[in-house]
Structure formats: C-alpha cells, structure tokens
Nucleic acid binder design. Structure first.
Lengths: 207, 207
DNA sequence: CTATAATGATACGAAGTAGTGTCATTTTTT
DNA sequence: AAAAAATGACACTACTTCGTATCATTATAG
C-alpha cells in the first residue's frame, strides 16, 4: 500500500505499528540466521544490520543492546514453540514423532546449541529456555503417558524424562555438534517408535 | 634441582624437554579453565598468559595460533579420557555408574559445552571429539551388553546407544545449560541403575 | 496542518585484541 | 667454551567492534 513498495528503494519516515512489528521480526530473523551460522560473539552488529537490510541505528532503537537482540531472538522462538506445543491433541506415537521432527529441525538445534554456548553469559535466559522447552515437553509426555494407562511403576515420575531423553538421544547430540543432517519423517517415526517400545513396552499399536 | 626453584623469580633460558612438557600442560590447564569459564571467544591471549604465568610470546612459540591452543586443549582431554576408558574391566553397573560420574564432571561438561559452542568453527575437531568420546563409550557399552548375554533383540544394535543416551539424559542437558550441579556418587549410581533397568530389564543383581 | 517519531547514511570515538618485533638474559646443548 | 634455543618484558601495529552522534528526510499521529 505504501507508494514505494514496488521500487527497490526503501522508504524512511515514521513507520506504522504493523511495520514496526514486521521490521522487528525481520531483524530477529536475520539475527537467528547469523547467530546460528556464526555464533553470537562472531556476529557483529554491522553484519546483522546488513543482513536485516536495516541500519545499525535502527537496531539500537529497537534493541538497546547486542545482548538484548539475543534474548529477544530466543524469547520469540521460545514462546512460539510453546504455543505450538500446547495446542495439540494426538496419539502418543504421533506426538513423539512430531517432537523428534521439531526438535531436530535446523532452527531448534541451532537455538539449542546457541543457548548451550551462551548459557554462562545468560543464565536467566537459559533457565527460561529449559523451563519452557525441555521441561514443557516432558510435562506433555508425562500427561500423555498417564492417560495411556501405564503400569504403576515405582519410578513412574522419571519415565517421561527418560522418554524425552530417548527421543533426542545420540542423533540430537550429533546434530548439536554439526555431524548429521536433520532426520527424515520416516527416520523420525522409526526413532520415536523405538523409544516408545523401550519405555512403555512392546504393545503400542496406536501408530 | 634448578637453583632458583625456591625463590619466586622465574628463570629464563633454554628449558629441558621435561620442563617444556610441564609448561605446555600449564598453559593448557589455564586454557581449559578459562575457556570453560568464559568461552573461547571471550578469552584473550593476554588473560591466558597471565593465568598460565607465562608471557604471550611463550604461548605463540608453543602454539602458533589461538585456535591451535583450543584444539590442543581438546585433544589432550580427548586422548586422556580415551586412555582412561580403555583400561577398565568392571561389572556393567559399575561401568555405567562411573560413566555417569565422569561425564557429569565439571571438566567433561565444560569441554562438551565448549565443543558444542565452537563446533561450527572446528568441524574436524568436533568429529574427532565425538568419535573418541560418545562413540567410544557406546562401543564399550555395546561389548559389555553382548557379554552380559542380552536377549537377541532385532534392534540390538541401538541398545547401547539408547543406554548411553539414558545415562546422560536430562541431568546432563541441565548441566550443559549450567542449571544443575554435578551429581553425587549416590545419585549417579541410582541414575545408572534406573537406566540399566529400562534397557536390560529388571534383573541385574550385579551391583 | 503541525509536530513527532523513526530511519538512512555516515562518521567517529573508545576500547579491546591478535599477533609481531626487539633485545637482553639465562640455560641447555654440543 | 661457544652456539643455540627459549623466555621475559614490553612496545607497537593493524584491525575489529560496540555504541553514539549528527542531520536531513519522510511518513504517520493527533
């Protein structure tokens, strides 16, 4: 609608509320991409500005700080992943498969790696990340396991945690180290079923 | 033996072979400590020199490069951990418990985190790290599981990998994110037994 | 219409850092 | 005894980077 949209020239002037949000996302998109590719410390604000097609000045008006760009990027991913999680209602196998796929995606692995790398610098963010990431998924699995009518083990509390650990497992570690590509849907499903077999036993025909 | 050893003054002059090794270790000790505490990028050579009680010049004669200091530190840990691994002969429960303890130690977790953080910059090192770290442990577990006379599952190949993943599990992830202290020996043992129970079944009285 | 917020462009300051050069000094090596 | 190797001390260069300042320009808000 703005009369310069078709041209390559970028307009300057007071932006509308919607444009501000778009621009914010634009900056964070570039930030995630660069941080994941090169790391937080190795990414300069100038690079980020160039990648986001924005000037450095703009970044500092949106985020006061380089660290704040980082926390904002992680926070955005965090809340979006949480929202995506809580609005689901499938079978256990399906949920497990989807979890494997999502958690091994480039974005999730990249941010996970980033969070591990920068955890000493951002301890509070690391806490939030873990609480609404892994912990949230474990709680979901736990409720699903209860609903599935699991045998009343003495160590029933740790089963969801073990299941989550199995769903990630070594493939996820290899991904964190950059040693493997993301799994295909078929591989993810196979992996999920193997993990479930180990935790809930042989019979789970809900696939 | 050197005639200035008692005084605080450090000598200068051509060092003996043994002294060179000691000094090299001294530098790498400081490097590991600093890298783990502050990260690779956030540690300057000057800091490292001060911490190792050595001048910057010396660091550059031993290692030509800052990156080479990093690879040397990881390599030293890598081979020492591998040597420590291959010279053992215990019961499955004992090995699992020791694995839990070792892999959750400050040094192991710190280097693991460091390796994840810098993997994009040092891909070949990451490969070696994984091959002689996790992969080595998995092979060890696999041979022990075979010796233990495991049921001839169709998915017998993945059991050692699953066991290893369970031995680390969420506690290890929390450690990577700086959210938990190292486990006590009792906790490690309990964790190891729970993991074994899940993988090899109920009966494992070898504790 | 008027005031205002935001941006592009660009330069700049301050600080930190990797890596090198120099040189005297001391100890090992031969 | 003489040569060589290595170190401490320290300055120094070249470069990068964060964050700020300036200022004209333009579109939105009221």
């Amino acid at each position: 609608m703005t009369h310069l949209e078709a041209t390559g020239r970028r307009k300057r002037g007071r932006p509308t509320q919607e444009e501000r949000e778009r621009r914010r996302d634009q900056i964070l998109d570039a930030a995630v991409s660069l941080f994941v590719a090169k790391g937080f410390g190795q990414t300069s604000i100038d690079e980020l500005a160039a990648a986001a097609r924005v000037t450095k000045r703009t970044i500092y008006t949106y985020f006061g700080d380089k660290a704040e760009v980082f926390t904002a990027a992680v926070e955005r991913f965090r809340v979006s992943a949480l929202a995506q999680l809580t609005a689901e209602d499938e079978s256990l196998t399906d949920v497990a498969t989807r979890l494997v796929l999502v958690l091994h995606s480039d974005e999730a692995v990249g941010l996970h790696r980033l969070m591990i790398a920068e955890a000493p610098q951002f301890p509070r963010l690391a806490e939030r990340f873990y609480a609404s990431g892994p912990l949230g998924y474990i709680e979901l699995l736990s409720s699903l396991l209860d609903a599935e009518g699991a045998p009343p083990d003495a160590a029933a509390d740790g089963r969801a945690e073990a299941l989550f650990g199995l769903l990630l497992g070594e493939p996820h570690r290899r991904r964190l180290l950059g040693l493997a590509p993301a799994p295909t849907p078929a591989e993810a499903r196979r992996h999920a079923r193997a993990a479930l077999r180990l935790v809930v036993g042989e019979g789970d025909g809900a696939g």
